[in-house]
């Protein structure tokens, strides 16, 4: 578990080095496996993710908690709402 502010991340998936649409696929699989209300983080180094992942989260109706740029990758944090 990792604490971003007061958000507790239940599961973090490291999809760095995976190519489009790999990180998005990891996120979708992770969301499927997660309990409702759970928080999932995905690490991606694919530049396509910055648009694709938020677009999917919105389309799927989950909650995007935040997009956190790190050195050479980005951490996407979302809550499963249903």
């Amino acid at each position: 578990m990792l604490d971003i502010g007061n958000i507790i991340i239940d599961k973090e998936i490291d999809a760095r080095g995976s190519f489009c649409p790999g990180p998005l696929m990891e996120l979708i699989r992770g969301m499927k496996a997660l309990h409702v209300g759970g928080v999932l983080a995905v690490l991606s180094s694919d530049p396509g993710s910055s648009k694709d992942i938020p677009a999917w989260i919105q389309k799927a109706g989950h909650e995007l908690i935040g997009v956190f740029p790190e050195q050479g990758y980005t951490r996407f944090v979302a809550r499963k709402t249903h």
């Binding site: 489009c20 649409p21 998005l24 696929m25 979708i28 694709d52 677009a55 999917w56 389309k59 799927a60």
Partner: peptide
Amino acid sequence: SILTTGAAAMG
């Protein structure tokens, strides 16, 4: 295959 994945992901 990538187009298929993207479309499937977007429902």
